[in-house]
Simulated assay, not measured.
Amino acid sequence: MSRLERSHNLLDAIAACDWYDAEMVMSAVLEEARADAPLVPFGDIEDDAEFWAAMATYEELRAYFLACGKRLARRQIGRRGKIRLAQLLLADLTDEDRQTMVATHRTGDAGRQVIQPERRQAEGPRR
């Protein structure tokens, strides 16, 4: 049986279940498949990091990325290190989004996206 056929069978089985039962089974399976925290590297640290990242859930990737980013920001990684990180972060942005990011940084509004409510003149009795 091909991978595609097995996937269709799995989807059919999920659809045939009561949603509550299917959710419980899928949650248990996904929890078992989680990568957990990275272990002490036994070989090349970058290979271990790539392996762990490939196995991690979105929530794990996000949490570790933000925690590592905060720690790296406090370290002296040098100009080249900062440029390399920025290139990685900006690589998937559109040109317009990159320009917005740079412009936001230059104006000092980084991290502060404020949406002002529309101001209206108070309407009282007309005189």
Rank of each mutant, 00 (worst) to 15 (best):
R3H: 06
R6Y: 03
R6W: 02
H8N: 08
H8I: 15
L11R: 12
A16H: 07
W19M: 06
A22Q: 02
A22N: 03
E23R: 06
V25C: 02
V25P: 01
M26V: 15
M26E: 03
A28Q: 13
L30N: 09
L30W: 01
L30C: 07
L30G: 00
E31Y: 06
R34H: 07
A35E: 07
D36V: 03
P38W: 00
P41V: 05
F42G: 13
F42S: 13
G43Y: 02
D44L: 00
I45C: 02
D47L: 08
E50M: 07
F51S: 08
W52S: 01
A56E: 01
A56R: 01
T57E: 04
T57I: 01
T57K: 00
Y58S: 00
A63R: 04
Y64C: 03
L66K: 03
L72Q: 08
R74F: 02
R74Y: 02
R75L: 13
R75W: 04
Q76A: 11
Q76Y: 05
R79V: 14
R79E: 14
R80P: 07
R80D: 15
K82Q: 14
R84L: 12
R84H: 09
L85G: 01
A86V: 08
A86S: 12
L88T: 02
L88E: 10
L90F: 11
L93E: 09
Q99M: 11
Q99W: 02
M101L: 15
A103S: 14
T104C: 05
H105M: 12
H105E: 13
R106I: 09
G108L: 03
A110N: 04
G111H: 03
Q113R: 13
V114N: 06
V114W: 04
I115S: 11
Q116C: 05
Q116Y: 14
A122S: 11
P125A: 10
R127A: 10
